[in-house]
């Protein structure tokens, strides 16, 4: 029971890291980016390739996954996404669906359709007994890493100068520009970091989630649930939503495997019905 809860928290944490970038681009910048999962997948495959083929240790591959996904994110933002910020949502949706299709088939072409696993080092395997509860070491590791990232994100967005500039640029890009804030550079950095975090999440989750070429499609709905249910006014909302979703998912799979995802979708619809702004957000 407690082990299940722990597993749920761990997968919720991974989900949060995966979706946190989307919470910023979609939540703050109001850009509907359905291709967010593609960057996560890039991170996942980067870790798999680095650990199995290049002999990079697992721990070192995590920051590399972050960097690779972030670089990809920056590249795409500069060349493609930047043209679509001011467009209607429909255009953004279609554009990002196109990207998803391309990512899915391209990875399928290069890597093959089968599931890939990351090689987790020995000291992260197995379980430890803590107060009579068996906890997976890897799960503990995930929770520690993700917790730290979440905390840092909260600090950066809420307290730092960069966070203030970002919020200003989002609220009113014109005025922010007038005040000398480099809006487009801030957007690029934000997008890159968001993609990088997705990549890190993909790398961490390569063990928990199933890493196949259809990853972006499969988890797209999860990311979107985290952001919409969590609400977009703060980073705490998506964090709680991700935890809820992770826990609900693990429990659902264990106790009610026949219904599975059905409950998740139903809950999401209900939440959106009652609170279109999200569960943890004040209506604007």
């Amino acid at each position: 029971m407690l082990t299940l809860l722990f597993d749920g928290i761990a997968s919720g944490m991974v989900l949060f890291i995966l979706a946190s970038g989307l919470a910023v681009t979609l939540g703050l910048m109001n850009f509907i980016n359905l291709a967010h999962g593609a960057f996560a997948m890039a991170g996942g495959y980067a870790t798999v390739l680095l650990t199995t083929h290049a002999g990079v240790p697992f721990l070192a591959s995590l920051p590399l996954a972050f960097l690779i996904a972030a670089a990809l994110g920056a590249l795409f933002e500069r060349t493609l996404y930047v043209h679509l910020y001011a467009r209607p949502h429909l255009d953004q949706v279609l554009f990002s669906i196109g990207l998803v299709f391309m990512a899915v088939t391209a990875v399928d072409y290069v890597m093959g359709a089968q599931q890939r696993y990351a090689e987790v080092p020995g000291y992260l395997k197995g379980r430890v007994e803590l107060f009579g509860v068996g906890l997976g070491r890897y799960r503990i590791f995930i929770i520690a890493v993700c917790g730290a990232v979440a905390f840092a994100l909260q600090l950066i967005l809420g307290r730092s100068r960069f966070g203030a500039q970002l919020r200003a640029a989002v609220d009113d890009a014109r005025t922010a520009r007038g005040l000398g804030i480099p809006v487009s550079r801030i957007f690029t950095i934000t997008f890159a970091v968001g993609s990088g975090l997705a990549g890190l999440g993909g790398a961490l989750g390569a063990e928990i989630l199933t890493l196949t070429p259809t990853f972006p499609l499969k988890y797209m709905i999860s990311f979107l649930i985290v952001v919409t249910v969590g609400g977009t006014s703060s980073i705490t909302g998506p964090f709680l939503a991700a935890l809820l979703l992770g826990i609900a998912d693990v429990f659902g799979n264990y106790y009610l495997p026949e219904i599975g995802a059905f409950v998740t979708y139903l809950l999401m619809l209900t939440v959106l019905m009652i609170r279109p702004q999200g569960l943890f957000a004040r209506p604007r």
């Binding site: 949502h89 709905i221 979107l224 219904i259 059905f262 619809l269 959106l272 279109p276």
Partner: peptide
């Protein structure tokens, strides 16, 4: 009827996923 484009996207997507999952189960 309610909400923004994003909410509509999620609701329409959710309904189709819900039905797909129901048909699967």
């Amino acid at each position: 009827l309610r909400g923004t484009d994003l909410t509509r996207l999620m609701v329409t997507l959710g309904v189709s996923l819900l039905l797909g999952e129901a048909a699967n189960k």
